[in-house]
Simulated scan of single mutants.
Amino acid sequence: MAVAPARRRAFWSSPWAEESPRSPGPSADENKKKKPSSHHRLAAVMDAVADRKLPPELRGRANAVRSETDIINVVEQRIWHSMEEGHFENLPGKGKPLNLNSNPHADPAEDTLYRILSRNGCAPEWVELNKEIRGMIARWRSALRKAWANRSEDDHSTWHDDHRLLQEQIRQINDKVFRYNLIVPFGRQMFGLNWDKELDKLKQ
């Protein structure tokens, strides 16, 4: 028995028989927005590493750390708590003189070299250079004070000659400071002299 055309159309046009429209998938631009960039991933890793460096009391609160003082305060609190609990009472070597013949924090090769130099009455080059620079700075500042006191408002020729000589000496001192900073162990560097700052000290 044949189905009437009207009923056939009704059958195929029924809601449950129609194919439901598919929702459009995410576009390429949306995928890019959802996927974090390499810059953000790197920043997240750096933040995580920095957070791990903090004491446990400050982890997860990196925004609350305003300066190194906040970290130092936490460390000092730990030290005081350990002292109150007696953790420092039974340390090995308590009451005995310290052994200063070697430096456990220095490079073994450098430590051996320094011991050999010390036994032979010598010092590392940077130690001798440090003494030389400090002596030069002391003499230079003394000469600057003398030249400044002897300057005359009427006759500038003397101050002009002293000024030129002192400028040449300050260049020699700063050259030695530069060489010293290249050979000195890390953390012992020094600043050179600045002409304007030295004059400002005299004017105060």
Results as ranks from 00 to 15, higher is better:
residue 63 N to D: 12
residue 128 E to R: 13
residue 179 R to A: 09
residue 95 G to C: 02
residue 188 R to E: 10
residue 82 S to Y: 15
residue 42 L to H: 12
residue 142 S to G: 08
residue 68 E to R: 07
residue 13 S to E: 15
residue 187 G to I: 09
residue 162 D to W: 08
residue 55 P to A: 05
residue 94 K to N: 12
residue 191 F to V: 08
residue 49 V to E: 10
residue 165 L to N: 13
residue 121 G to S: 06
residue 151 R to S: 11
residue 201 K to T: 12
residue 98 L to E: 09
residue 34 K to A: 09
residue 150 N to V: 08
residue 28 A to V: 12
residue 155 D to L: 05
residue 29 D to V: 10
residue 111 D to K: 03
residue 4 A to W: 08
residue 114 Y to S: 04
residue 42 L to G: 01
residue 168 E to G: 14
residue 16 W to H: 10
residue 46 M to H: 13
residue 200 D to L: 10
residue 174 N to D: 14
residue 183 I to V: 03
residue 141 R to N: 07
residue 112 T to G: 04
residue 147 A to N: 02
residue 9 R to P: 01
residue 56 P to D: 06
residue 129 L to F: 05
residue 137 I to A: 06
residue 18 E to H: 11
residue 7 R to V: 15
residue 171 R to L: 11
residue 152 S to I: 00
residue 193 L to Q: 03
residue 140 W to L: 04
residue 13 S to I: 05
residue 23 S to L: 13
residue 147 A to M: 05
residue 34 K to H: 09
residue 112 T to H: 04
residue 153 E to D: 12
residue 125 E to W: 02
residue 164 R to P: 04
residue 93 G to C: 08
residue 169 Q to H: 14
residue 94 K to F: 10
residue 137 I to N: 01
residue 8 R to Y: 11
residue 171 R to E: 09
residue 104 P to S: 05
residue 143 A to W: 03
residue 79 I to T: 08
residue 183 I to P: 06
residue 97 P to H: 01
residue 50 A to T: 12
residue 71 I to S: 06
residue 10 A to G: 04
residue 66 R to V: 02
residue 46 M to Q: 12
residue 75 V to W: 13
residue 65 V to D: 00
residue 113 L to M: 09
residue 189 Q to L: 01
residue 165 L to Q: 15
residue 19 E to V: 11
residue 2 A to I: 08
residue 27 S to T: 08
residue 34 K to S: 04
residue 146 K to S: 14
residue 69 T to S: 04
residue 26 P to T: 06
residue 28 A to G: 07
residue 170 I to K: 00
residue 141 R to Y: 03
residue 59 R to M: 02
residue 201 K to G: 07
residue 132 E to H: 07
residue 21 P to S: 06
residue 1 M to I: 10
residue 95 G to R: 00
residue 30 E to A: 07
residue 20 S to V: 10
residue 126 W to R: 03
